[in-house]
Design a protein around this nucleic acid. Structure first.
Length: 376
DNA sequence: AACACGGGGAC
DNA sequence: GTCCCAGTGTT
C-alpha cells in the first residue's frame, strides 16, 4: 500500500487547517510579533535591494553574524548599480570571514544581470527572482513576500522546525516527502493579508521561541495550534537523520618572504576557497621533516626557501574537517617563480586588500603583528 | 538522495 | 565535543 502519496501528505496539512487552527495561529502570531520583533537593519525599509542582500547573507548564517557585514556592505554598495559596477575582489573582500564565498560571486553576477538585462529593475515575482544566480526557492519567496508583500511561501531552518511542530510531523523534515508537506503548509499559511509581516513573524517565532533546543512552549503564542506541544513531542520533532563525521587533518603553511614581499597563492577551481588567496599550504603527513615542505614548495613554485625554526600553530574547523595548521617562516634563497602558476609576490601594503581565506587572514595578521604592523 | 560549500554561535 | 544557522547548486 502506498503510504507516501500526495493524498496522505495533504491530509496532514488539511487536518490541521480543518481544525480551525489557521485563524487562531495567525491572530496570536501577529500579535506576538508586534511586541517581540527585533529591530534588524534590513527591516528599516522594504527596499528589495536591502532585503535581497540580507537574505543572501543570511543563508546558513546566523543573524548576529550578519549584522555587521550587512552594514559594511550597504555603506560600500548602497544600490544595485554600485554593486554591478564593483570589482569582484572588492565584493569578496567585504565577504571575507562570512563563508560560502560562492554567494558573493553569484550576488555580483546577479547584480550585473539586473542592471544590464533588466535596466536596473528588480523582478516582481518568485520565478523572476529564482532565475537569478544564488536565489533558490526560499530566497525568492522571502524577497517576494517581505519586500513586495506578495503571498509567496518560504521554508528555511526556523520555519521547518516551527511548521513540523505545529503539524506534529513524524516524517524526516529533510526527506522529499517532509519537504513537500512543509512547503505545502507554508503555502496554505501565507495565503492571507499581510504576507510580508506573516513570513517575518513565523521566522521570528521559530528563531526566538520555537528553538531547536529547549523550545519555550509556555511562552509560545501558538501553543493552542501546536500538535507537537499537545502530545508532548516538542523535543522529538522535528525528526532529522542528519549526521556529521568529523575528520582531523594536518597541514603546514609557509610564510615565504623575499625583500618586502610575501608569497601568496590563489586557490584554484576544485579547491576550497576557490579564487581566494592563501599562504602556500601542504598536507603534513607523519610530521615529516621541514625540508620536505621546502621541497614541496620548490616543486610547485620553482622557489627554494630556507625555513626558520620559529613556527606557530593554529586550529581551524571547516565544514567537516578539523585542521591543525603548522605555520613556518621561510626566506627565499634561490630559484625563480615559475610562470603560469597560482603564486604571486604580494607587498605588505597589498595584503589587506586581497580577499583571503579565514586561516590566510589569521596568518597574515599574525605575521604583520610580528612586524609591528596592524590593520583591520 | 547525497554531497560540497565556511565559519561561528550556543550549550 | 555536537548541532545548527533566514540554502543553493551539482552529481
Amino acid at each position: 500500500m502506498p503510504n507516501r502519496t500526495a493524498d496522505s501528505d495533504q491530509r496532514i496539512v488539511q487536518d490541521w487547517l480543518g481544525d480551525g487552527y489557521k485563524a487562531i495561529f495567525r491572530r496570536r502570531l501577529l500579535r506576538w510579533y508586534r511586541s517581540n520583533r527585533r529591530d534588524l537593519p534590513w527591516r528599516t525599509t522594504p527596499d528589495p535591494y536591502r532585503v535581497w542582500i540580507s537574505e543572501i547573507m543570511l543563508q546558513q548564517t546566523q543573524v548576529t553574524t550578519v549584522i555587521d557585514y550587512f552594514h559594511r556592505f550597504m555603506s560600500r554598495f548602497p544600490n544595485v548599480r554600485t554593486l554591478a559596477n564593483a570589482d569582484l575582489d572588492d565584493v569578496l573582500r567585504l565577504w571575507e570571514g562570512l563563508g560560502y564565498y560562492r554567494r558573493a560571486r553569484q550576488l555580483h553576477a546577479a547584480a550585473k544581470v539586473i542592471v544590464n538585462e533588466f535596466g536596473g529593475a528588480f523582478p516582481q515575482e518568485v520565478s523572476g527572482w529564482q532565475n537569478l544566480p544564488g536565489v533558490g526557492r526560499y530566497t525568492a519567496g522571502a524577497i517576494t513576500s517581505i519586500a513586495l508583500n506578495r503571498p509567496a511561501p518560504i521554508l528555511e531552518g526556523n520555519t521547518i522546525r516551527l511548521f513540523a511542530r505545529l503539524l506534529g510531523l513524524e516524517a524526516d523534515v529533510r526527506s522529499t516527502r517532509g519537504q513537500r508537506i512543509l512547503w505545502s503548509f507554508s503555502e496554505e499559511l501565507v495565503d492571507g493579508p499581510e504576507p510580508s509581516k506573516f513570513n517575518q513573524a513565523v521566522m521570528e517565532l521559530g528563531s526566538l521561541v520555537c528553538r531547536d533546543r529547549q523550545p519555550q512552549c509556555t511562552a509560545c503564542p501558538a501553543w493552542p495550534a501546536c500538535r507537537a506541544f499537545s502530545s508532548g513531542n516538542q523535543t522529538r520533532i522535528p525528526v532529522s537523520s542528519y549526521k556529521v563525521v568529523y575528520e582531523k587533518v594536518c597541514e603546514a603553511a609557509i610564510i615565504a618572504t623575499r625583500g618586502g614581499k610575501v608569497l601568496m597563492r590563489q586557490c584554484q577551481p576544485g579547491e576550497r576557497w576557490t579564487g581566494l588567496w592563501d599562504f602556500p599550504r601542504f598536507p603534513w603527513l607523519d610530521h615529516e621533516p621541514e625540508r620536505q615542505l621546502a621541497s614541496s614548495l620548490e616543486q610547485l613554485s620553482g622557489l627554494r626557501v630556507a625555513l626558520t625554526p620559529d613556527s606557530f600553530s593554529l586550529r581551524h574547523a571547516v565544514t567537516r574537517f578539523r585542521i591543525e595548521l603548522r605555520c613556518f617562516r621561510g626566506e627565499v634563497v634561490g630559484g625563480r617563480l615559475a610562470t603560469r602558476t597560482a603564486f604571486r609576490w604580494v607587498s605588505l601594503a597589498e595584503l589587506p586588500k586581497l580577499p583571503l581565506s579565514a586561516t590566510g587572514r589569521r596568518i597574515a595578521n599574525h605575521f604583520l603583528r610580528a612586524h609591528g604592523l596592524e590593520f583591520d
